[in-house]
């Protein structure tokens, strides 16, 4: 052995030294060297992604650790959610949660909100029902009457059955006596192209999608209890004003930030502080105004957000049940 043995021993010693030297200074949260990952369960460039990224930019300013966004899309929003649930509850992995989490959980695709703790609420993006300007229906009343006269003849498209537009369109259809032919499309872009091309009659959109095609689309009704915050869309009537007082539809997508249950309280508190500061920052507030994103009734953090989620679940349950979506 001789020389070779000495060489091996020396190497082992050196390794041990570096282990010791590099291994100290652990145990504080956040470890500044670790990255905090915010999992967005949709692909980059989508509605959830564009709403989350600006707040992350602000969060970076208040965080010691590096923060990055990771898009893990697939199977509604359940793939990204399941990924967060499979990683250790150490506060380094956050989830862009919201109404999509609620509907994915109810469909039994993930343990979702049952295994999540709230960190901070963000905002609502209300949905708008729109048709091509060249279509004969000029108001929601016209449309519904026509649909009831010819059940199944008018197609109502959504951006995918698993997501919030899917649930909203199903809920609407149930409320109108199943008069529409509800058809899912492959995401918002596909739906828009099909409505613009006249292949699908009615579509359910977010505000920014309507804005991008104002010259071709005629917005009929906003599925929210108040008017749009955008000047261009202020005139769109709410469901109440359109003459459907008793209609209860989850008419928008809500976004928030959550972590896995069991995350240390100290970490959660610090994260909540960061999200709160980022949410209230000038930059994010003006971003919300510009995009017409509406704040929830109050700013919720930690257990307050859990409570708000319970409210949402309560509102979704009857609809999901009626639609045959609920899996228990």
């Amino acid at each position: 052995m001789g020389k070779r043995g000495v060489l091996v021993c020396g190497l082992v010693l050196l390794v041990a030294f570096f282990t010791f030297a590099a291994g100290q200074d652990e145990g504080v949260w956040p470890d500044p060297e670790k990255t905090i990952t915010i999992v967005v369960p949709y692909s980059a460039g989508g509605g959830t992604d564009t709403a989350i990224r600006p707040v992350v930019e602000e969060m970076k300013k208040y965080s010691e650790a590096i923060i990055i966004v990771s898009n893990i899309s697939g199977a509604g929003s359940s793939k990204g959610t399941n990924e967060v649930l499979s990683l250790p509850a150490d506060g380094y992995t956050l989830l862009a949660s919201g109404t999509h989490t609620v509907s994915a959980t109810m469909q039994g695709l993930t343990d979702g909100y049952k295994q999540l703790d709230g960190i901070g609420s963000l905002n609502w993006d209300p949905f708008i029902i729109a048709v091509l300007k060249s279509q004969p229906w000029k108001s929601m009343k016209d449309l519904v009457e026509d649909a009831k006269k010819n059940p199944g003849k008018i197609s109502l498209g959504n951006a995918g059955m698993g997501g919030a537009t899917g649930v909203a369109s199903v809920a609407m259809n149930l409320a109108f006596g199943k008069a529409f032919n509800v058809t899912p499309f492959q995401g918002g872009q596909d739906l828009r192209a099909n409505v613009l091309g006249g292949h699908c009659d009615v579509g359910i959109f977010s505000q920014s999608e309507i804005l991008a095609n104002q010259d071709m689309l005629n917005p009929l009704v906003i599925l929210y209890h108040e008017h749009s915050a955008l000047d261009e869309l202020k005139h769109v009537p709410t469901l109440n004003e359109a003459g459907f007082e008793n209609l209860k539809v989850p008419g928008g997508s809500f976004k928030s930030i959550s972590v896995r249950k069991g995350t240390p309280e100290a970490a959660k508190k610090q994260l909540a502080e960061i999200v709160k500061k980022a949410y209230h920052s000038q930059a994010y507030q003006s971003f919300m105004k510009e995009k017409g994103l509406l704040p929830p009734p109050d700013y919720y953090e930690l257990t307050e957000l859990d409570g708000y989620f319970d409210e949402l679940v309560g509102a979704f349950t009857p609809i999901m049940k009626a639609a045959g979506l609920l899996k228990e």
């Binding site: 091996v8 190497l11 050196l14 390794v15 570096f18 282990t19 590099a22």
Partner: peptide, 18 residues
């Protein structure tokens, strides 16, 4: 031997960046 050198190599880099 190569694995030991590898670990050592990694540790040096890791130590410096940390």
């Amino acid at each position: 031997i190569s694995t030991c050198v590898m670990v050592l190599f990694y540790s040096i880099g890791r130590y410096i960046s940390r």
